[in-house]
Amino acid sequence: MPMAAEDIEGMIKAALPDAAVEITDLRGDGDHYAARVVSETFRGMPRVKQHQTVYNALGGRMGGVLHALQLTTAVPE
């Protein structure tokens, strides 16, 4: 069963309350999303650790319920 964009956003914001999150359904199938996550939490973190933080927020759903997530992370300017 596909995941709703709102569920993905909610899980990320639960883990990173200050985050600005934009979710785009790339194919309209609920399985392939792009996410842009901007959070002060990422400041000083290597990009890999930023991505791991977001994946951890999704609670193991990557590769299962959520097939693909094109992820962009950043710190606020």
Rank of each mutant, 00 (worst) to 15 (best):
A19M: 07
R36L: 15
D29T: 06
P17G: 07
G10A: 14
E22Q: 11
V21A: 04
K49N: 14
G28S: 01
R47I: 13
L26Q: 05
G44I: 03
D29A: 02
R36Q: 14
R47L: 15
Q52G: 09
V48W: 02
M62I: 10
D18N: 06
V75A: 09
A14L: 05
A74G: 13
V65E: 15
A19W: 01
A19F: 02
G28K: 08
L26F: 03
E6Q: 13
I23V: 14
Q52A: 14
R43F: 08
L66A: 07
K49D: 15
R47C: 13
G10D: 03
A15I: 02
R43H: 10
H32E: 06
M11S: 08
Q52P: 09
A68F: 07
A14I: 05
I23N: 05
G30R: 13
R36H: 12
E40G: 15
D25T: 07
T41N: 01
G30T: 09
D25Q: 08
A34I: 05
P17Q: 04
R61Y: 00
V65G: 12
R47T: 14
H67K: 06
S39R: 07
L26Y: 05
L58D: 01
Q52L: 13
H32Y: 13
L66D: 08
M62T: 02
A34Q: 14
R47V: 14
I12H: 09
V37Y: 09
V37L: 10
P2S: 07
R36Y: 08
G10P: 06
I23D: 05
A5C: 03
G64C: 00
A74F: 01
V75E: 09
A57K: 02
A19C: 09
P2Y: 03
V38N: 11
K49A: 15
A15H: 09
T41Y: 14
A19L: 05
T53L: 10
A74M: 03
G10M: 05
P76K: 05
D18R: 10
M45P: 08
Q52F: 01
Q52C: 02
T41D: 12
R27C: 08
H51D: 08
I8H: 11
K49F: 07
A74E: 13
Y33V: 08
V54C: 09
D29N: 10
M11H: 04
P76M: 11
A5Q: 11
H67Q: 12
I8L: 15
G59H: 01
T72Q: 12
D25N: 05
A74I: 01
S39W: 07
R27M: 04
M45H: 09
D7E: 14
A57W: 01
G44L: 11
E9V: 06
V48R: 14
E77C: 03
A35Y: 13
S39H: 07
M3G: 01
E6D: 12
M1C: 00
A34F: 07
K13V: 02
L58P: 06
G64P: 00
A5F: 07
I23F: 10
V21K: 01
G30C: 05
Y55T: 02
K49V: 11
M11E: 11
V65Q: 15
R47S: 15
E22G: 02
E9D: 06
A4H: 04
M3S: 09
P76F: 12
T73D: 04
A20P: 00
N56R: 15
Q52D: 10
P17V: 03
V21D: 01
L71S: 06
T24N: 04
T53Q: 11
G44Q: 12
P46V: 14
L66K: 06
V48L: 15
G64W: 00
L66C: 04
V54W: 06
